[in-house]
Design a protein around this nucleic acid. Structure first.
Lengths: 146, 146
DNA sequence: AAAATCTTGAGCAACTCACTAGACATCTAG
DNA sequence: CTAGATGTCTAGTGAGTTGCTCAAGATTTT
């Protein structure tokens, strides 16, 4: 029950990109150095976020990455789902990627004890992460700097 | 962000063991068949639960496993922590297995934006799972049968 | 002693994490 | 307007973990 490094790195990278939102682009090695992330692994993460429509990139000598959506529009839940897949602790309670569990004997019956408990967990997690925007996330960061 | 199969199987096995609590023992193959779990994998899980003090086992021709604690005393949180490790989504917010994140640039500073969000998630998950007892869990099961 | 069961350990395939090497695109210098 | 420096992008590799299997050993009852 952990988030992957991918999500953690991805969020920390976005934190960095928030600070230059609207301004200049950031290069992968800048982000990597400041956040202590392996550059090549970070690359994969940034590309995934780009394919998902959160980032834009430019190649060449003055290339780099920049946020394409405003920090208010991006939630932690979105980011984690892009990098880590659905939030649901087991797939039979996922709202974004539901999948009937094939092996469970309760699958056929109207309700499953696991589903009820895990459904509550899912909702609790989603409630927090889908209302936590990047701007609020990054803002905490700035405040503590003062 | 998923629970492992280990936890899922473990909980479903305990569900089965709740029903015979105080009565006869259950053999691994009985549990495995009813819950559609690979027998040999289930074995490892049952042994882990035994080592943790939840189950007792007897070898030999009338052997099997039985619950050693009452279903009211066992919470889903306990079980998952035994089989899956700490509940915290990242280790720097774990209460049962705290670990200072070595690579994070905020580790030194008084607060980290990730920590705040993840701490809320941790609390939400723990709040649900540490108050959900096996008896309540199993009870839902019986009710839906009627 | 024999049969049924738990117990232990090693071993395998698939996935995640971290990293490497090289292809491809873009800008600047000459 | 071409050469090379500086980027992004793609594919592949190896360590470590997870989900699962197999085989041999230990213990209890008949």
């Amino acid at each position: 029950m952990k988030f992957s490094k991918k999500s953690e790195y991805g969020l920390r990278a976005l934190l960095e990109l928030c600070e230059t939102y609207g301004g200049r682009v950031l290069q992968r090695h800048e982000i990597a150095e400041r956040q202590n992330i392996p550059v090549e692994f970070l690359e994969q993460i940034l590309l995934a976020l780009k394919r998902a429509g959160l980032l834009a990139s430019r190649r060449g000598i003055r290339g780099g990455y920049s946020l394409i959506k405003s920090p208010e529009e991006i939630t932690l839940g979105q980011v984690i789902r892009i990098l880590d897949g659905p939030l649901a602790p087991i797939s039979c309670v996922s709202k974004t990627a539901y999948q009937k569990c094939s092996d469970c004997p309760y699958a056929a019956k109207p309700s499953c004890p696991l589903q009820q408990a895990m459904g509550e967990v899912r909702d609790a997690i989603a409630n927090i992460l889908d209302h936590y925007t990047l701007s609020r996330f990054a803002h905490n960061n700035l405040v503590e700097g003062s």
